[in-house]
Amino acid sequence: MFIVNLTYVKPMEEVEKHLVEHITFLDKYYASNNFICSGRKNPRTGGIILCNATNMEEVEKIISEDPFKIDSIANYEIVEFQPTKYDENFKKFVE
């Protein structure tokens, strides 16, 4: 399991210009069950994606397709972690 922490490095006007394409990217990886949840930070300085992937290389490959990455809209920090305690509804993502 991975937490992908996006931090915008371009003005909000640039973020907004690429938002539709970014949402399409997110939808692709929700459909493949790689993304579990995502959303904006508050204040709106970037976003967070909870990603279910086999390894860091897979996450990096996925992120390389994000328009925010391609167009240098955001920097990415990827943190790997192993869920050891979770709600029963989350179990399907851990198995």
Rank of each mutant, 00 (worst) to 15 (best):
Y30S: 09
I70E: 04
N42Q: 14
V94I: 15
Q82L: 14
L50W: 11
I23K: 03
I63Y: 09
N5Q: 11
H22G: 00
Y29K: 00
S72T: 05
R40C: 04
I73T: 10
E88C: 01
I23F: 10
V20F: 11
M56W: 11
R44P: 09
V59T: 09
H18S: 06
N42T: 15
I49H: 06
V9T: 10
D87N: 14
T45H: 12
N5M: 11
N33C: 00
V20K: 08
D87R: 12
E16W: 14
G46I: 11
F90Y: 15
D27M: 08
E77H: 15
C37L: 03
F93N: 13
F81Y: 15
E58G: 13
E88N: 10
K85G: 15
E16Q: 13
Y76L: 01
F2W: 08
N89H: 12
E65T: 07
S38Q: 08
C51P: 04
P67Q: 07
L19V: 08
R40H: 05
F90T: 14
E88K: 02
S38W: 08
I23Q: 03
F35G: 01
C51F: 03
E13W: 05
I48L: 11
G46W: 13
I63H: 13
A74K: 09
E14Q: 07
P43S: 05
V59G: 06
K91D: 15
C37N: 03
F2Q: 02
T54N: 14
A74R: 04
H22A: 02
P11A: 02
K91E: 15
F2L: 05
E95Y: 12
N89W: 14
N75P: 01
I36L: 07
S38H: 05
S32F: 03
F2H: 04
S64W: 13
K85P: 13
N52C: 14
V59R: 08
E60S: 12
V79L: 13
P67R: 09
D66H: 05
N89R: 15
L19F: 09
I23M: 06
Y8A: 01
V15S: 02
R44E: 04
H22L: 00
F68Y: 14
F90Q: 09
Y29Q: 01
Y8Q: 03
F90D: 03
L50Y: 03
T54Y: 13
F93M: 12
E77L: 15
E65L: 08
K69L: 01
G46N: 08
L26W: 06
V79R: 12
S72I: 03
K69I: 05
D27S: 13
A74Y: 02
P83K: 07
N89K: 15
V59N: 04
F81P: 02
